[in-house]
Amino acid sequence: MRCCLKIRSEYFFSIRFYGGVIILLSLSGLTGCASVEPWEKGMLAKPEMGWTPDPIEAAMESHIFFSKEGSSGGNVSGGGGCGCN
């Protein structure tokens, strides 16, 4: 478990990995994004395709991570307060 965590995280956290992902996404966007019609959005309208399908649980999660980790932000939900001990 400990060794696997190290190897995996090094790969997943490398800039190249994300650079690649971003370039791929932007290319697929260039070729496909202008053609989606309003009546073709059935899949995108499914609840499991939402950015935050369960906002109330997401608020709890982001509050926990905000309290227990050294960085925060990047999400819309999440309340205030500390609960930081």
């Binding site: 800039i15 650079g19 971003i22 370039i23 966007g29 260039l30 202008a34 053609s35």
Partner: peptide, 21 residues
């Protein structure tokens, strides 16, 4: 990290320029 932000901004611009008739 230092590459991520400019690339994201680039994608933003590219997407804004695109529009469908």
């Amino acid at each position: 990290m230092h590459h991520t932000i400019p690339v994201c901004i680039l994608i933003l611009i590219v997407f804004i320029v695109l529009s469908a008739p």
